[in-house]
Amino acid sequence: MSVEGAVRPRARGRARRATGSRLTPYVFIAPAAVYILVLQALPLLQEIRLSFTKTTLTRPNDSTWVGLDNFIKLFSSEGFQQTLGVTAVYVVACVVGAVGVGLAVALLLDGSYRGRGIARALVTVPWAAPGVAVALIVTWMLNGQYGIATKAMKALGLIAENGVVLQDRTWALPVILLVTTWQIFPFDAVVLLSALQAVPGELKEAVKVDGGGSLWGFRAAVWPSVRATVGLLALLNAIWAIRRFDLIWITTRGGPSGRTKTLVIDLYDSAFMRGDLGSAAAVGVVGIVISLLLIGGSQLVTRAAERGGQA
């Protein structure tokens, strides 16, 4: 007893000196925590507060509490309903397009052949190129008279006359979607490619002998090992689609007549073009709620899938 009592405190003291005090972990996280609180949590709260006020860009410190007015106005305006519709189409199409193309390209690039590394590097280029530069070259390629893409579309009979496709009510959104898919698919392809490498080679060979590339073989051999990755990519792509600003703002500013106006574009337009900070913040709150629902929903799906897999 007395021996133990004599030894223990010393041991504890040494252990404490070694790992520092109990406060040490908090000293390590404090700078980042303060930083995140000031630049993420605080703006989040401010956004919620602003969304219940009438505040203008010209007199930002002068806000009047208006309760739910901003939200009521938003949801009863046709413009915002269109924005929600465009955002939904944009997000779903980006996810389906980018994950679909990404998976196809990953399957295509999988395997061992000469030039594999180069192929993998080249396919990443669209994802690495800065959004602003992409917006600039896309605008030029779609120049009404001299753009190569405009000429190609005319040659294919997609458009009857030369004209600015990005200002065309029918074509603006599909074109933006196509460019976004082009920007995102490389990431999906590279991630899926590394997931595919985890599939045992023998299994792939077996499927090949059995009539390679068939849908059955894909479902039996490949799908189970990439399913979880596809789920994660779908979530990431959805968030990126909600986030995408530079491409749309620079090429169309949400036009023509709101055909390419996503939540982020609507928010920016309300705040900095129309100077209505209150309603912009309300758009932001809607966007944040949608993002959180997406994140939460995907977690539920993942958990359910895991449980299903175990049972």
């Binding site: 972990p25 995140i36 703006p43 956004e47 986030r243 928010l267 705040a271 932001g284 966007g287 994140i295």
Partner: peptide, 26 residues
């Protein structure tokens, strides 16, 4: 620690452009 991890993930996921208005004010 768990909370810190979740907060980090959330901040990774939140679209930054949605916060441009309050950040402008700050």
């Amino acid at each position: 620690k768990g909370l810190a991890g979740v907060a980090l993930l959330m901040t990774q996921m939140l679209p930054e452009a949605l916060l441009v208005v309050p950040l402008f004010g700050i």
